[in-house]
Design a protein around this nucleic acid. Structure first.
Lengths: 199, 199
DNA sequence: GTCTATACTAGGATAGAC
DNA sequence: GTCTATCCTAGTATAGAC
């Protein structure tokens, strides 16, 4: 009889579903507060479970971080490859990839956790993973998208600028000068980004 | 007599000298490991004094960080203003400022602590300081250097790219692909940066 | 699959001596 | 001006029950 009891409170999920939920919460938190700045307890509460269960599920906090980071890198590369595949000769590939990049911000955490990792070069385990992520992007632009060197630099530089604006929260900060800078850098896409990074 | 005793071990410095020494060590460490990733004890050891004395000197760790960050922002703006003042009508101001920016990396920690702060937008006290730093740069480029909007974006974007390459330690990482990316982004200045960020 | 209780370590800050 | 000793909190990880 007790197994049929209606459970309105927390649901018992499959291991897979719970993993997803934890990874989602972790990406968001790691993305805004960084690796050391985020506690496994915050992640647990955001995912609606207990702190020890988070650790139990991923072994260590570091492991969880790496998995979240690799997810983000994977999603980014997949998006880029999809855009490239759908690309018709006539169009401007650089602009298409750029727009796809901005739209990835709707995923919120995605770009931020990558950026957090890019600055953690000194970390013995996050550092290598971050460098690999950056190099993958570079190789894609060079070998798959066949960008010219100058276009590669421009593209990556602009990406890092977007990451910085979002990371500094200038895109969610209410100030005329901030708005001006964000408009200047993002143009027509500024409002899209503001909406994605608000609240 | 005891006051004349030769002291070969740790010197007793004036408060001012000691402050400088601590700020130097703090900038370096905060720059590579971030605010939360750096302990006051690491800073103390790097400066050759005891952990409680670091705290005693600056009140709190947060305070020390803010002071290091403001130093960095101040130095950057001072350099930019000097370049602008020495600028002759004929030359290319954008290039001159860009070169000055790269040369600031010789100061190692300077750009890295700024970048760390740019990603800490969510922090209630570092966040505002970082946004102020970014906006100061923007205002300088727009109102003092009189850059066109497109040039502002290009300039800041390229700066963030440099910060990312240094932060990820791709500039001190021995790998052909990494070297290629760094050369591609920094051109003739690549080796200067590599030397500054090595070891 | 998920919890509670808890062990253990690290780190910021304070007190007070010299 | 600088140290040693120490308090206290926070945070990761483990053990073991249900």
């Amino acid at each position: 009889m007790s197994s049929v009891t209606v459970e309105l409170a927390r649901k018992r999920l499959s291991a897979g579903e719970r993993r997803e939920q934890i990874l989602l919460a972790a990406s968001e938190l790691f993305g805004s507060h960084g690796y050391v700045g985020t506690t496994t307890d915050q992640i647990a509460r955001a995912a609606g479970i207990s702190q020890p269960y988070v650790v139990r599920m991923f072994g260590t906090k570091e492991n969880l971080y790496l998995e979240a980071l690799n997810r983000a890198c994977g999603a980014l590369m997949a998006t880029f490859r999809r855009v490239l595949a759908e690309h018709v000769e006539a169009g401007d590939l650089g602009r298409e990839l750029g727009e796809a990049y901005i739209e990835l911000i709707a995923d919120r955490a995605l770009l931020r956790i990558m950026m957090q990792s890019f600055l953690a070069g000194a970390d013995p385990v996050i550092g290598p993973a971050a460098r690999k992520g950056l190099l993958d992007i570079y190789r894609f632009l060079k070998e798959e998208a066949r960008f010219e060197p100058d276009d590669i630099v421009r593209f990556i530089a602009h990406g890092m600028l977007i990451n910085t604006l979002v990371g500094s929260e200038l895109t969610s900060f209410d100030d005329p000068a901030a708005d001006e800078l964000v408009d200047c850098c993002l143009g027509a896409k500024a409002d899209l980004v503001r909406r994605a990074t608000a609240g």
